[in-house]
């Protein structure tokens, strides 16, 4: 019995070790390549012959404008994060804790809207923005990105709504009995209880502009100075640039992944809970 257990445990650990290697290797490969001193794209070996920081430094000089891309994305992310969080919390709170005539119909409409492929309407968005005159200059384009990201935020209410659903209704009733208005109940009773979900919404809406590619590409077009990091990194792997920027692409990716990964790891608890919680209900 003891030997059987030993064999089972060893087998499990060996399998896990092999799988971990498979999962970690590509990341190590990316990190190694980001420090590779040899220029050019693909090599006949994996481990670089010499190491250098030049790829990281190179991101900030010459034709590449990584610092600029970073600050563009940061600006867009901060503004759209503030606006989206406000909008998402509004919808989630109303849909979860208030009962009114149009509630069910509105929930159905939200469901239907969510089923259309997101960027099907991108061309129309593009022309609406053009109609507003927001595609004239680069700064306006960034403003347009903030508008579009936060404009769609109203549909992202499911996870926070699930959270609000779990707060006992008696709290609201007690607050009304004490003479509070619904607004006061919302801001002074429910919001202080909802700090974790507010943090979750803040982080997820902050992350969205960093990882969105398609919309940013369509709106920003050829305006390289106003690219976001995602669009910029993607262009570095285009055929005409691949030879020059291959190693710098990895440097840029590693650089951006560190803060984003940290933020993501902060939200993963909620992520697991939201799915687990919603289905457990």
């Amino acid at each position: 019995m003891k030997t059987r257990k030993f064999i089972a445990n060893s087998a499990a650990h060996i399998t896990l070790a092999v799988l971990s290697v498979i999962w970690v290797l590509p990341i190590i490969f990316a990190v190694l390549t980001s420090f590779r001193a040899e220029s050019g794209s693909y090599k006949t070996y994996i481990i670089p012959k010499a190491f250098t920081f030049a790829n990281y430094i190179g991101l900030f000089e010459g034709a590449l404008n990584y610092g600029r891309w970073f600050s563009n994305t940061l600006t867009v992310a901060i503004f759209s994060c503030i606006v989206s969080t406000f909008l998402v919390l509004c919808v989630a709170y109303v849909m979860s804790r208030l009962r009114f005539k149009m509630r069910k119909p509105l929930l159905s409409v939200a469901l239907v809207l969510g089923m259309f492929p997101g960027f099907m309407a991108m061309i129309a968005v593009y022309y609406i923005l053009k109609g507003f005159g927001l595609l004239e200059t680069g700064q306006f384009k960034l403003f347009a990105l903030v508008l579009v990201y936060s404009g769609g935020a109203g549909l992202m209410f499911y996870v926070p709504k699930g959270f609000f659903d779990t707060i006992p209704k008696t709290l609201d009733e007690a607050s009304y009995l004490d003479g509070a208005t619904k607004w006061q109940t919302f801001t002074r009773v429910i919001m202080p209880l909802s700090k974790p979900i507010i943090v979750y919404v803040l982080i997820t809406s902050f992350l969205a502009p960093w990882t969105d590619f398609i919309l940013a590409k369509v709106i920003l077009g050829q305006d390289r100075d106003y690219y976001t990091v995602a669009v910029g990194l993607w262009t570095m792997l285009e055929k005409e640039y691949l030879q020059y920027y291959y190693t710098r692409f990895f440097a840029g990716s590693v650089l951006i992944s560190i803060p984003l990964a940290t933020l993501f790891l902060l939200t993963q608890k909620f992520y697991a809970e939201s799915v687990g919680g919603a289905v457990k209900g």
Binding site: W23, V24, P26, I27, W210, T211, F213, A230, L233, W234, S253, I256, S257, L260, A261, T262, F264, L265
Partner: peptide, 8 residues
């Protein structure tokens, strides 16, 4: 680690 990195 692999999901913490942005998908793209």
């Amino acid at each position: 680690l692999s999901i913490a990195m942005p998908a793209f």
